[in-house]
Design a protein around this nucleic acid. Structure first.
Length: 223
DNA sequence: ATCCAGGGGG
DNA sequence: CCCCCCGGAT
C-alpha cells in the first residue's frame, strides 16, 4: 500500500542521493558544453540509449555539426549514418527537422512548453534540458526514475507509468526546489550504477528508506 | 532474453 | 492505453 513520503523521508532521500552524487557523478561532455544546441542534441541521442554508448557518437556528431544551420543542411542519410549505432533511426528525420526549426530562430527556447513544440522533444527532453541547461526547476521522469521511485515506495509500475500523473506528482514532490540539478544528475547516475535492474542494494546510500530493500519483512540479499 | 537519459502515433 | 522503433551491451 502506497504512502506518500513525509518530510523527513524526502530529506533523507534527497541528501542521500546528492551526497552519493558528489562522489560519483559521471562526467559527460554534454553536461558542461556551452552549446545549448549540442546539449539538446545530446538529450535526444540519450533517448532509450545508455550514456556510455552515446558518448562516441556525440563527439563525432558535435564535431561535424557545430550549428543548427550546418545540421539542417546535412543529408538525411548522413545523419542516419552518424547515429546508426544507437538504433531508433527515425530520430534522424526528427533531428533534421529540429535543426531546420532551430536554424530559423535566434536562440533555443528555455521555456518548457516552448521546448515541447520542437521535433524529437518530449516531456523528458524538455525537462532535462531546462533543468540542466537553463537552470530552471524541473523534475525528470525516465525509465530509471520510474524504477527508483517504484522500489523506494513499493508501487507497481508499468510501461506507461512514466506518463502518469501519479509519477509526475511524485517526482515533483521528491525533487528539491533549489538543488534540482544536483538531484537530477544524482538520480540519473544512481539509477545507472546502483539502482539498476539487478540492484546493488548493499552499497545503496538510501536503502534505509527503500520498500524494495525491506520487502517481505526481510531485507534484500537475505531473502 | 532484457534493458537502455523516450517520442510519436493510433 | 497500446504499440513501434532498434542497435548494442550485459
Amino acid at each position: 500500500m502506497y504512502k506518500s513520503p513525509n518530510k523527513q523521508t524526502i530529506r533523507f532521500i534527497r541528501n542521500g542521493l546528492i551526497g552519493w552524487g558528489k562522489k560519483n557523478y559521471r562526467k559527460f561532455p554534454w553536461r558542461h558544453t556551452k552549446s545549448k544546441f549540442h546539449a539538446l542534441i545530446a538529450e535526444i541521442l540519450l533517448q532509450r540509449t545508455k550514456a556510455d554508448q552515446v558518448l562516441p557518437v556525440y563527439k563525432v556528431f558535435t564535431a561535424k555539426y557545430k550549428t543548427p544551420y550546418s545540421l539542417s543542411k546535412a543529408r538525411l542519410a548522413e545523419i542516419k549514418k552518424a547515429i546508426k549505432s544507437l538504433g531508433l533511426l527515425w530520430r534522424a528525420g526528427l533531428i533534421k527537422k529540429l535543426a531546420v526549426v532551430l536554424s530559423r530562430g535566434k536562440s533555443i527556447a528555455c521555456d518548457y512548453h516552448e521546448l515541447l513544440k520542437l521535433p524529437a522533444v518530449g516531456p523528458y527532453v524538455a525537462s532535462a534540458f531546462s533543468s540542466f541547461h537553463c537552470n530552471k526547476f524541473r523534475s525528470i521522469i525516465d525509465s530509471n526514475v520510474v524504477r527508483l521511485y517504484g522500489r523506494l515506495f513499493g508501487v507497481k509500475t508499468g510501461p506507461e507509468t512514466r506518463r502518469s500523473k501519479f509519477m509526475y506528482d511524485l517526482a515533483n514532490l521528491m525533487t528539491p526546489q533549489k538543488a534540482f540539478k544536483a538531484y537530477n544528475y544524482a538520480v540519473l547516475d544512481h539509477t545507472a550504477a546502483i539502482c539498476v535492474s539487478k540492484p546493488r542494494c548493499e552499497i545503496c546510500p538510501i536503502k534505509k528508506e527503500c520498500r524494495y530493500y525491506f520487502r517481505r519483512g526481510g531485507y534484500y540479499g537475505k531473502k
